[in-house]
Design a protein around this nucleic acid. Sequence first.
DNA 1: TCAATCCGTATC
DNA 2: ATACGGATTGAC
Length: 662
Amino acid sequence: MNPVARVAVDVPLAHLDRPFDYLVPERLAAQAVPGCRVRVRFNGLLVNGFVLARAAASEFAGGLQPLTRVVSAEPVLSAEVAGLARAVADRYAGTLADVLRLAVPPRRAAVEREPLVPPGVPPSDRLSAGTWQRYVGGPAFLAGVTQGRSVRAVWTAVPGDTWCVEIAATVAACLAGGRGALVVVPDARDVARVDAALGAALGPGRHVALTADLGPAKRYRRWLAVRRGVVSAVVGTRASMFAPVGNLGLVVVWDDGDDLHAEPQAPYPHVRDVLVLRAHRIGAGALVGGFARTAEGEALLASGWAKALAAPRDVVRSAAPRVAVATDDAVLQSDPAARAARLPSPAIQTARQALAADAPVLVQVPRRGYVPVLACADCRASARCVTCAGPLGLAAGGPDAVPGCRWCGQQATGWRCVHCDSDRLRAVVVGVRRTAEEIGRAFPDVPVVTSGRDGVLAAVPGQSALVVCTPGAEPVAAGGYGAVLLLDGWALLARPDLRAAEEALRCWFAAAALARSGTAGGRVVIMATAGVPAVEALVRWDPGWAAGRELRDRAELRFPPAVRMASLTGTPAGVAELLAGAELPASAELLGPVAVVTSPPGPGPPPGAEPVAERMLVRVSRADGPALAAALKAASAAHAARGSAFSAAARAGVRLDPIEVG
DNA sequence: TCAATCCGTATC
DNA sequence: ATACGGATTGAC
């Protein structure tokens, strides 16, 4: 038996991010298997660790400490996940220990002791290409997955599509080929949907669903079932990107533009990037899907790594709803209902028609706080434009800007409240509740339901109703929505974020895809400026065109994914120290520093707000990405090694390809 | 002469 | 991080 155990110790220090060798005492020889959890003495302290490997001898010149304890002989860390975790740590300039904390859930001893549940019934294999037939190259992709080839695709789902069914069919194809599959979706509601589709496609007991809200025991039970090979298919939210599926043959990420796919814990890995890396490392198939297409997805196509999986234009056209843009609002004044609902009259008319046909209407409202509208400071009535009754807002430009109409653009100088004659304005946030009330008043006899942050609906019946919701919380409607109204589109587009247009379009496509086809009467009305590329892409239902544009724009601006970027955030001293210690690649370009606010946007800045932190951006060509990460990792290591020498005033953190920049 | 303290260094 | 050792400083 090999007497040496190579151990990854759980210490938070970048310069200790490497394996350490320990002697395996005779009594632990059988238990200290690769992948198991151990306790070891590390510089005198007891710390947790994982056995990465057993070896005949150590390279280490000094004497080895013995393993203190084998926590459990369960080999929780597979070789594949260990290798992936190392690669992810390297990619994000982070430590293996940080990634392992995300990848391996805390142990539940009682769960490990439970008897092994026998695997589910082997496939009855009702394999069919099903709706994949509609995609160019769809059946071929499916065949490739079954045959165990490393087929990779960026998939643009046909509007109205039950995407879960395609995902389930692909997973079934993978399992039929004798390999495992992993599906990662943004939220628990999507997990439930895919879970149901997998149940239908695979039969009982062949897959598990992993979500954060399961509770530790349940979660660990299912996770262990995956690790032990009891099941070979997993659907879950972002933490399951590291799920230890054995003989992995397929990874799937749905709606990769959703921010929920970005892990908020160090080293801040992104589901799409991790799954792409994972598939690449082991030659597994990969499917990156959504109704929209991200610039990152487009980059996977542009590099040739993945192939596009989309339906022919005529299929898309006949499946898509008819999209109209509501901007000009001359008609508004003549329509009291429109006025009451704060909606342009084309939107009201479209909703009326759908409701008259006993179809549900979806109303998408940007999240609370996204829409800076103004109200009377005294009586709180919302402030309206005197000519068109559109909502007044402040243009980006601070509180001193003159309020203007969001619809007709007219400046509201000398505004007075029509109710109480006050001349004082205040900013208010309009959320789903308030919007639902206002719209309800415009349609007195129609039931109104809401779906948002508190209380998300999964589905609504196919009857006349108004469904008001925030992006991402749209219920599916039986038979599809007769109309979808996309409110305040300008607000989504105007956000000072580089990804605003892509994100807005993603939200619109996701909602509009729930409408009936145009031939079946499905209509979409978006309140935004016609001719803006994102709006144009929705009208023409062309996600690929938008993504191509987006990627070209990013290339021009030199932003990810066209380049690789790192943000260094911390105290000015910390950032300077980190930069000074980093041997950056020649292509590196420095941007900044800029002051950053660390507190989240809330009810105003705290009294005496001080300049807390600053941020520098470093960008390099994509080819220099690994070198950039390595340089920053080395600098962090040196920084950490000095540690106490430099004061705590010199702190700084590194993030690669951060989601929010701009 | 001894001890309290401060750096600097190593962590299998 | 945290623990240890060797040098440094201060007080008896």
